Simulated assay, not measured.
Amino acid sequence: MEIAFMLQIWNAGAAIAVILCFILSIAAVKWLLSSYRPIKGLPPGSMGWPLLGETIQFLEPHSATTRGSFMDNHIKRYGNIFKSCLFGHPTIVSADPEFNKFILMNEDKLFQCSYPSNISAILGKWSLLVLVAEEHKRMRSIAVNFLSIPKLRDFFLPDIERHVLLTLGTWKEGQVISAHNESKKFTFNLIAKQIMSFNPGETRTTELMNDYLTFMKGVIAPPLNIPGTAYYRALQSRSKILETVKRVLKERSQQSKGTYNDLLESVTRSGNLSTEQILDVVLNMIFGGYETSTVALTLALKFLADAPAVVEELRVEHEAIRASFTSDRRLTWEDYKKMSFTHCVGAARS
């Protein structure tokens, strides 16, 4: 009887497995038919492997000063506009500047911005990368208002100078440093200060940075929400970051308004956002500012190291401004506006 019962269980399990395989096979065939069905007017290209497409090749690491082997090989083979399959979706990839400008100029008219569902899950439904139309404009205006000229003049500039001096103070004569690592620490410390008034060296600043770096690794990872994967760890880190922001919000609810001059204070004071929206705004401001600023700063240092004549002209300009300083004088907005050559270098770098 016991053997017969076990055989019945095994037969039932085998039947379920067969049914599941059948269902998965039908789903795979439907996906293949929808993805590979010829559509007139599409540019040339390759759809890659079933389900995976060409995602693995697309995500291969490459130098920040190149487009990467995926783009170079496809452009050489198919031209500046080609079809592919990325992140499980049929995709048209454009490396044509004029066409890209046309798309951006006609956003919400002829084109609508969208991202795979895994991006929404990890960045939040109120992310600027996910929102469209009026909701996107409303959330974007929050970031724009925070970066106003008075804010840049009265708070950002002094903080930038303070963080630069703090970073330079940790360098020793003859020490070999990593420009990228130093750029990452400088950028994150500055962002943490401007967004939540976290100071460099504080335990919570270090913890926030570690959580964020884990989070970033999952943003561009395959969306496999399985323990041990980069995507799973990123979702866990996202939860930890949001818990940190919630704790700060709770602490500030017991303090008088106007105590801080950071983004969190700004969005809280407006009173127009829910807690969920505030959390997504904070996370996305870190996301939007950290990677772009870190890469730009690192590349600026790299290119300046290759251009000694430019470095010399920068030195002359800054020494002239510095000549009027007293021992305790700091940079002012007027000093910043005098840096005409520096602005040209910054524009060229961008």
Rank of each mutant, 00 (worst) to 15 (best):
E54T: 02
T55D: 00
V93G: 08
V144T: 15
A27E: 05
R67E: 11
I75M: 14
I103N: 11
N118G: 06
L157Y: 13
N118Q: 12
P116S: 06
P158R: 15
R162W: 13
G169E: 03
E134V: 03
L42I: 08
C113Q: 11
K40R: 05
H163I: 12
S94M: 12
T170P: 04
T167A: 09
T66S: 15
L128S: 01
F58K: 02
A133I: 00
S84D: 03
P44A: 08
T66R: 14
R162T: 11
L51S: 12
I92E: 06
T65K: 15
S34D: 04
M105I: 01
S148F: 04
P116A: 02
G79T: 13
R67I: 09
A64C: 05
K109C: 02
S127G: 13
M47N: 07
H136K: 03
C85W: 02
H62R: 13
E135D: 07
C85M: 05
S127F: 07
T91N: 04
I160C: 15
R37A: 09
I56H: 09
S127K: 08
E134F: 02
Y36T: 12
F82H: 14
N100V: 12
K137L: 01
E173T: 13
K109D: 04
K40W: 07
L168I: 03
S35K: 04
S120H: 06
G41V: 10
W31A: 10
L123V: 07
K83R: 13
A27S: 05
P116Q: 01
G53L: 00
P50Y: 04
S148G: 05
L42R: 08
A27T: 00
I81C: 10
V130C: 12
S117L: 07
C85T: 06
V93A: 12
D96T: 10
G124K: 02
N80R: 15
A95N: 15
H136C: 00
C85R: 07
D96M: 11
V130Q: 14
N118A: 11
K101V: 03
S127W: 09
S141Y: 02
L168F: 08
V93S: 07
L59S: 09
N100T: 08
G45H: 11
L110M: 05
L51G: 12
R153T: 03
L110P: 06
P43E: 05
S34I: 04
S148C: 08
T170E: 09
Q112Y: 06
P158Q: 15
E107D: 09
S35F: 02
L51P: 14
Q57A: 04
F102Q: 05
P97Y: 08
I142A: 00
L152C: 06
E134K: 05
P61R: 03
D108S: 12
E135F: 01
R77H: 11
E134L: 02
K151I: 04
T65M: 14
A143V: 08
A133Q: 02
L32S: 09
F156P: 09
S114H: 11
P61S: 02
L52M: 15
P38E: 01
F156D: 07
Y115E: 07
E98W: 01
S141W: 00
F146P: 06
S34F: 01
L147V: 03
G41C: 10
W126T: 00
K125W: 01
V132S: 11
M71A: 13
P44T: 06
S35M: 03
P116L: 02
H136D: 03
I160K: 13
D72S: 14
K76Y: 11
L59Y: 02
L32E: 06
P116W: 02
